[in-house]
């Protein structure tokens, strides 16, 4: 794919793409959160000067070829196995920095065992968890995090507790494990949220440099194509429907659970999508 040429006409350069992002044009749908999260992640790696010692693990899902965009050494894992692959890498290269980048199906459905046990061992790497409550790549099927009542291609009448169970809050689950050190939920639906995410990613890499244990950042994201909305509608829907279930903010800081008001517990209230 060709490099995007932007005429500068003598304008002052105020922002440059970090050298940690390749020139390959991303394949993500318009409005998708993946591109923003990639950018934030790679900016932090550039800012911290750790490009030469960071190894990423790509998942199966929409971000399966994220290694085409991230200008670092990477491994592409089988579906759900990213944290096992990352364990293999980190254990033999303990002084390198390792992260996984996984979606909700990858991390919280097929990879649940690997996720929980990597966190329980306190594997010293960062897990980036993109939660958009849907399977984007395969065409919009139900995810383990899909909201109750949410219409997907495999829940055409909305997700029902009786047949599909409750949306899973795996981030809160792993926060209870002593192996995890920093657990937070962020989003990328507006510029403020993006800046918060960047701070969180920075913090997590610093913890990894200090060998503190597992850090997990959930990014509540969107899927305009899967949700069948335009990007603006999708971000609005995210705030109104995703946040009550997946409330943004820190869940565990420096190995201690953050005291806060209980978030909405799932009930049979239907979410219209």
């Amino acid at each position: 794919m060709s490099e995007i040429q932007v005429p500068t006409n003598g304008m002052e350069v105020v922002w440059e793409k970090p050298k940690t992002l390749t020139d390959t044009r991303m394949h993500y749908c318009p409005g998708c959160g993946h591109g923003v999260v990639h950018k934030v992640l790679m900016e932090v790696i550039a800012d911290l000067g750790i490009q030469d010692k960071t190894i990423g693990v790509a998942p199966v899902g929409c971000s399966v070829i994220s290694y085409n965009y991230m200008n670092i050494d990477m491994q592409e894992a089988a579906h759900g196995r990213a944290t096992a692959v990352a364990t293999g890498i980190k254990r033999v290269l303990p002084d390198k920095l390792v992260f996984t980048y996984q979606g909700d199906g990858d991390l919280a459905a097929i990879g649940t065992a690997e996720t929980i046990h990597a966190c329980n061992r306190g594997e010293n790497f960062l897990i980036i968890f993109i939660n958009n409550a849907i399977y984007g790549m395969t065409g919009g099927q139900m995810a383990p995090t899909s909201l109750l009542g949410m219409v997907t291609s495999t829940t055409p009448e909305g997700r029902q507790v009786e047949t599909q169970g409750f949306p899973i809050k795996i981030t809160e689950m792993v926060a209870t494990l002593p192996g995890t050190y920093y657990i937070t939920r962020q989003s990328v639906h507006n510029p403020t949220a993006v800046r918060y995410l960047k701070k969180a990613v920075e913090k997590a890499f610093k913890h990894q440099l200090d060998k503190k244990g597992t850090c997990l950042i959930e990014v509540v994201s969107n899927c305009p194509s899967g949700w069948k909305m335009n990007p603006v509608e999708a971000n609005k829907w995210l705030e109104q429907n995703m946040f009550p279930m997946y409330s943004p903010g820190d869940i565990k800081i420096e190995g201690k659970l953050v005291e806060k008001k209980p978030t909405t517990t799932p009930d049979k209230k239907e979410t219209k999508l």
């Binding site: 894992a77 089988a78 196995r81 096992a84 692959v85 364990t87 890498i89 065992a113 690997e114």
Partner: peptide, 17 residues
């Protein structure tokens, strides 16, 4: 580790490294 599934994928990671 937690399973043979995890073990073989750790082999993938370690051998790849």
């Amino acid at each position: 580790v937690e399973s043979e599934v995890a073990a073989i994928n750790m082999i993938y990671g370690a051998a790849g490294a």
